[in-house]
């Protein structure tokens, strides 16, 4: 189900529709501030992410989009503000502790173990999640192999299971990177530019696969994206980042038709877009 289908279902009173308004936010950031020297990467960020939604973050380079992901996942610590996940503060926790609470992330540059096969990468993530670290039993024992193959199958990567991670093209690397994050069974997945560097012909197929898997497993997603077509088609809401602030926030059809967003973020004159 695409984001627009979700929104239509909501309007029609579908019992399966997202019920963000009646639920507490899964992630809640308040007053986040972080500056690198004179550059304000976060200048009072307030954002709620509702359970089950797909929130796209757009904005020019250097606006602070990745910084938000880094702060949420414990990689960077803000100078001020708070972040609550599932009602509990997570600021000051290590990335490991945050992952264990149910927040996963993927990276702009896929972080695969390049010397291992795709199957081994997936199995390692599954083993990490299971917490089974016996030093003498093989990684590819039947249980992990089956689970890893099932995971790769969901992401359409099963035919590449035996390929080394460094032999994959960018699209497959991005999917494998996200599959590794998904192996940890997060409730919230933060994805940093999941389609950057992916060939235009592959892009929609990859995002469709990704969205289907995440929707099927009930994962809430926040993703940084530059492709407005992807945003329009798959996001429930869009947050526009500009100089460390959220300049606009709302449904894609509203935000992406905002003249200021069109001019300052997308870089086209509103008249041309119309």
């Amino acid at each position: 189900m695409s984001a627009s289908d979700h929104r239509r279902a909501e309007a029609a009173g579908d019992p399966d529709r997202p019920r963000e308004a009646t639920r507490a936010p899964l992630l809640s950031a308040r007053g986040l501030r972080l500056a690198f020297g004179g550059v304000k990467a976060a200048d009072g960020i307030d954002l709620d992410v509702m359970p089950g939604e797909f929130l796209a973050i757009i904005g020019p380079n250097g606006a602070g989009k990745t910084t938000f992901i880094n702060m949420t996942t414990g990689y960077l610590r803000p100078q001020a503000g708070s972040i609550d996940y599932d009602g509990q503060p997570i600021l000051g926790l290590s990335p490991r502790a945050i992952v264990k609470r149910g927040i996963g992330r993927s990276f702009q540059l896929p972080q695969l173990f390049s010397e291992h096969t795709v199957l081994e990468n997936a199995a390692l993530a599954i083993a990490a999640h299971a917490g089974l670290w016996s030093p003498l039993t093989p990684l590819l024992r039947p249980r992990y192999r089956e689970e890893a193959m099932a995971l790769l199958d969901r992401f359409g990567l099963a035919p590449l299971a035996e390929a080394r991670a460094d032999a994959l093209n960018e699209g497959a690397r991005k999917l494998a990177d996200i599959a590794m994050a998904a192996a940890l069974q997060p409730r919230l997945l933060l994805m940093d530019e999941p389609t950057s560097g992916v060939a235009a012909t592959e892009k929609m197929g990859i995002v469709e696969t990704l969205v289907r898997v995440l929707r099927d497993t009930g994962v809430t997603a926040v993703f940084v994206e530059h492709d407005m077509e992807v945003v329009e088609r798959f996001a429930d809401r869009v947050a526009v980042w500009s100089q460390g602030r959220i300049a606009a926030l709302g449904p894609p059809e509203q935000v992406l038709n905002d003249p200021a967003v069109l001019r300052d973020v997308i870089g086209i004159e509103p008249a041309h877009h119309a």
Binding site: S94, L112, F113, A181, L184
Partner: peptide, 9 residues
């Protein structure tokens, strides 16, 4: 990929 390890918990 030490960073990835940390983000795998």
């Amino acid at each position: 990929r030490e960073t990835r390890l940390e983000f795998m918990g």
